[in-house]
Amino acid sequence: MLRVTWIQHRASLLIMIAIFGLVAAFMIATGLSVHGEYAKYLSNKCSYFGTFSFNQSECPNLGTSLLHSLNNLTIVDIFMHVVPILIAMFIGAPLVAREVESGTYQFAWTQGTPRSSWLTMKLLFLGVIVVVLAIPLGLIASWYAQPVDAIGFASHWQPGQFGVTAVTLPALCLTGLLAGVLIGVLLKKIVSAIATAGLVVGSLVVGIFAYLDNAIFSIHTTATAWYPSDGNIGVVNRFAPVGIGPKGSWGGWLVNIWYEGQNGVHLSTAKGVQILGRIFASYPKTQQVEPPQYVSTWLANHHYSFWISYQPANRYWMTQSFEAAIVLGVGFVLLKVTMKVIRRFV
């Protein structure tokens, strides 16, 4: 059965393997250069922020070289997010639609095996291949981005990277496959199913990128009092891996900031901006006072406090697993719907 299933789907699987291979080869080739620059950066004890000195003579040049070598990170992220869409289009959508178009469903579904079992066998075979391909691709993507995360230019929590690890990428690919199959079952035409699968799974990926990541990060955060800097969460997040922010947040992901007034009353964003303006306006220009100390004192004197909430670093894999579980849950629902539709098919 494996051999026959392979023969039936080898064309689309070979296309997928070729695409996966190209993406992996591109990441490895460019990633070796990134890691080479990173090794030089580390050997010179360079760091833009944190405990190492920034003033090593070679550091600015090395930092620039490292940044240049990371130019392909965006391309890699885009490639990786397209992978589940391609799986939906090339493997999922035609799975049943091709049977209907060619009429072979009349052979396959009138044998001794019920059609739900027939579909389960196929999905198991294809699903295992998809997962086996996606796991190393996710590992390579994480390896590629590791220097950029380590020096604090980006974070492995940020949506572009969070969805393409060895945990989340296989889940996305599997759900992409299942979404493609359902669309193929509903539309029954290969070309329209492939096009629709691309659009639907593309929207799913964008939805995860834009909403799901942040929604998951907002669950069960850790909150701590801190002092405002420039108020930009994204910037704070970038610096978190190298020790900017409260100690517990290092390597984590800052989710929210807010001001509280007397008795812990949560203040509006507009009020927060107003407070920050007052702090800056009152800052003594001649006095040598460290900004954090001055800001903290000012807030305490005026009965305000500044808070941040974040996901601690040690929750990264748990959060990864949670997102993967949600995506797989969507896939499971799609599978159940497919099974229901296929029983009453044609």
């Binding site: 059965m1 039936q8 060619s102 052979f107 001794g112």
Partner: peptide
């Protein structure tokens, strides 16, 4: 309607796999 790209032997193998006997 049968799978045109399969060999006859593969089609027989498929039928064998899709049936208890």
């Amino acid at each position: 309607p049968l799978y045109r790209y399969l060999k006859v032997s593969d089609t027989i193998a498929l039928a064998k796999n899709l049936n208890r006997s």
